[in-house]
Amino acid sequence: MDSHRKKLTSPATTDESSCVAVNAPSDVLTPEKRSLCMSSICGRDTKPEILLRKACWRLGMRYLLHTKLPGRPDFVFPR
């Protein structure tokens, strides 16, 4: 039993039942730093989105951008 207890309290080991490191910090950033990082992530007009929109437009597929539908889709094909 003592060897099992040592194993669980060692910071370098993992708990085999859940595969999560024991005594590991859940987040290394402060809440203020995490908020700043997350607020700088842009969700609109990303490069893959623009490439897809251009390809759809060239094919004659017309769409609406950033409508207020459930799930907040980036673009919607009205028909």
Results as ranks from 00 to 15, higher is better:
N23M: 04
I50L: 10
R79I: 12
A55R: 03
K68F: 09
L8Y: 09
K6I: 14
T30M: 00
L69R: 15
T9K: 10
M38E: 05
A12K: 14
T13L: 06
F77G: 12
P31N: 06
M38Q: 01
L52C: 02
L36V: 12
P11Y: 01
T30W: 00
S10W: 04
W57N: 00
P78A: 00
C56P: 05
A21I: 07
A24Q: 12
C42L: 11
T30P: 07
S39Q: 10
L8T: 09
W57M: 10
A55S: 09
L8G: 03
D15T: 13
V28W: 00
P73N: 14
G43E: 00
H66S: 07
N23E: 07
L51F: 05
P70G: 04
C42I: 08
T30R: 04
R34D: 01
K7G: 12
N23S: 07
N23L: 14
R34S: 05
T30Y: 05
M1G: 08
C37W: 09
S26N: 09
L69N: 10
S3H: 07
F75E: 08
L29P: 03
D74T: 09
D45H: 08
D15S: 14
T67F: 01
H66A: 06
S3E: 14
A21E: 15
L69S: 15
D2Y: 01
S40P: 04
F75P: 08
D2F: 02
K33N: 14
D45Q: 00
L69F: 13
E32R: 14
G60S: 11
A55M: 06
A24E: 12
R53E: 06
I41H: 07
R62E: 04
H66F: 15
